[in-house]
Structure formats: C-alpha cells, structure tokens
C-alpha cells in the first residue's frame, strides 16, 4: 500500500511545488534586498518619518566607553516602545504618526516654578552634550548609543526643586489617536517612571533630545526622553509630557504590572536575576555570543555610592 505513495515522490519537483512557495521565495529575496537597500541609505531613509531630523550641535562626549557603537539602523529599528506595539519593529513602523512639534511638558508637584513648558524653554539647546552610553535592556540585550542631551539636574534646577521633594515622576504621552499600542492593556497607561532625587541629580542622568548627531527619531522617544545608563532600559522613559516632583515614591507602570519582576530601582545587576531569566549575561546587538553583564552596567564608579548599605536583592 505504501509503495504506491512513491509515485508522488518520484514526480519532478516542479509538479509538487505549489505556486505560493515559488512566490514566497521571491518575496523573501525581495525582502532581503529591501533591507540591504535600507542599510545602504542608512538613517536618511525611514518609511514613517514624516519629518526631517535636524542636526544638533553638541559638545563631544565626556563619557565614552570606547566600545563599538551600535549601528544607527539597529538603534532606530529595534525598539521597545509598547505604545506603538509590542514587536521590536513596531515602533519604527508606527511611530511616524506622533506629532512632536510643538511639544509641551507640564511640570507640577513640589517645584518652585510649576506650569506648562515648551520643550525649548525646558532644555537649553545651546548646552547640549554628546554622551556615549551603554544601554542594557531587561530582556538581556544591549547597545552602545551616542545620545545628545543635557543633565537632568539642569532641568530640575530650572524648575526649582523644593526641599520636600524626594522623587521625580515622569509620564509618557498617552494618546490613542497617535499611538496604536495604547488601545491594548499591555500596561496601565500612561507609562510612568521615576527616580530618587539623588539618582535624578547624578551627573550621568541625561535628558536626551537626540542621538547620532540629530534629533531623536519618534521611535526612540522624541522629542524628549530620559537616559539612565546604569538602570535597565525601561527606566529611561520616552516622549515625556509630564514631570512631577513628589514626596512619595511613585509607582511605575512596570511595578504595577509585575511587582515581583520589576522593582522601583531596577539597577543593572548580574547577580540579581529577573524571576524568569538570568541577568548574568547579555547579547550586544550585532554580536553572536553573549557577554557578561557588568554591575551597574559598568557605571559603578559614578553611582555605587548611591546605594551604599542597601540590600540590592531586596531593592531590585
């Protein structure tokens, strides 16, 4: 009985290969070509960028780990920005619809000068500096990115920190019309993050407005985002519309989502695992094998004393 089946196998391959398979082959060859094309044109090409990214003048970096930069294409096309979808390519594909000019930030809480600030009034664009930082995602991958921005401390000094303020709370834009991802209850929107005041005032903590010499692309958190290089990437909140100074520790979106997995501090720490995966190693985007993750992502020299005497397994 089974021998009969052989007839099918003996037929020439063209008879048993469906058209869809041929077409599929062509499609992925064409797809590979498109990626090659995009790589050639580099940052100048993006399907969703409605605006041209302006060049930004900045002082050169005082912080440069001397490691190879992650290519611009990876930095801008492999992102976690769940407001635009949960796939890594979603932000690149969907974020173009976000209006970032004009942009205002409301400032409230324990500040001397509350109110609604235009981006230009909050950030001194004449004082921009470039900072090359490692970025370590909680998902155990990492990049090296040349950011442009000003220290967060300069922004906080501008709005005036009152003596009772112990924490800074940040909020991301939450707009269904512009952000397809917020229709899904992936997290409790708006996205909220926070820092302790001494963390916020630390010299490393950057308010970024650009990367690779230009304004931030939308998918990277335009026009204003936080960069806290010794913490997991999700602490570096994107597209900020509100800054509040508080006495109480703010509850962050990820804490609300899974408190046993994401703590308020979320410092990069190879010894404290995420409950579901190890944090001992990371994959640098573009490298095949994994490298060891460094304590505080290699920034212990600047930040370790912030946590002196704290049990970092408890305050993860």
């Amino acid at each position: 009985m089974w021998i009969k089946n052989r007839n099918g196998w003996n037929s020439p391959e063209r008879d048993v290969t469906p058209e869809s398979l041929f077409l599929n082959r062509r499609k992925f060859i064409a797809g590979a070509g498109a990626i090659a094309g995009a790589a050639l044109v580099g940052g100048a090409f993006s399907p969703t960028e409605a605006r041209t990214l302006k060049e930004l003048g900045a002082k050169s970096s005082a912080f440069d780990p001397g490691e190879e930069l992650t290519p611009y294409s990876a930095v801008t096309q492999y992102n976690n920005f769940y407001e635009f979808g949960t796939d890594k390519s979603d932000p690149y594909e969907n974020a173009g619809s976000m209006q970032v000019d004009p942009w205002s930030v409301s400032v409230d809480g324990l500040v001397d000068r509350p109110g609604t600030y235009d981006l230009m009034d909050l950030i001194d664009f004449n004082a921009l500096e470039e900072r090359i930082y490692r970025l370590r995602c909680v998902e155990a991958w990492s990049m090296v990115i040349p950011w442009i921005g000003v220290p967060l401390s300069s922004v906080l000094n501008k709005i005036g920190v009152q003596s009772g303020a112990k924490y800074v709370r940040f909020e991301t834009l939450n707009d269904r019309k512009q952000m397809p991802g917020v229709r899904w209850p992936v997290l409790d929107w708006p996205y909220v993050e926070g820092l302790r005041m001494d963390e916020a005032m630390n010299d490393l903590t950057l308010m970024a407005v650009g990367l690779y010499g230009k304004e931030l692309p939308n998918q990277n958190g335009a026009p204003l985002r936080l960069v806290v290089p010794w913490k997991y990437g999700f602490k570096s909140i994107k597209s900020i519309v509100r800054i509040s100074l508080t006495e109480k520790q703010p509850r962050t979106s990820w804490q609300k989502s899974a408190p046993q997995e994401y703590g308020f501090y979320s410092n990069v720490n190879p010894e404290v695992d995420h409950p579901r995966w190890s944090q001992a190693r990371e994959r640098r985007i573009g490298e095949f094998s994994r490298r060891k993750t460094l304590m505080f992502n290699g920034y212990g020299e600047w930040v370790a004393d912030l946590y002196a005497g704290m049990d970092l397994a408890k305050y993860y």
Partner: peptide, 8 residues
C-alpha cells in the same frame, strides 16, 4: 549578507 532575521 543581508537577511531577514532582524537585529537580534
């Protein structure tokens, strides 16, 4: 060579 496996 160029491929479709993405950045990771």
């Amino acid at each position: 060579l160029p491929h479709d496996l993405g950045f990771n």
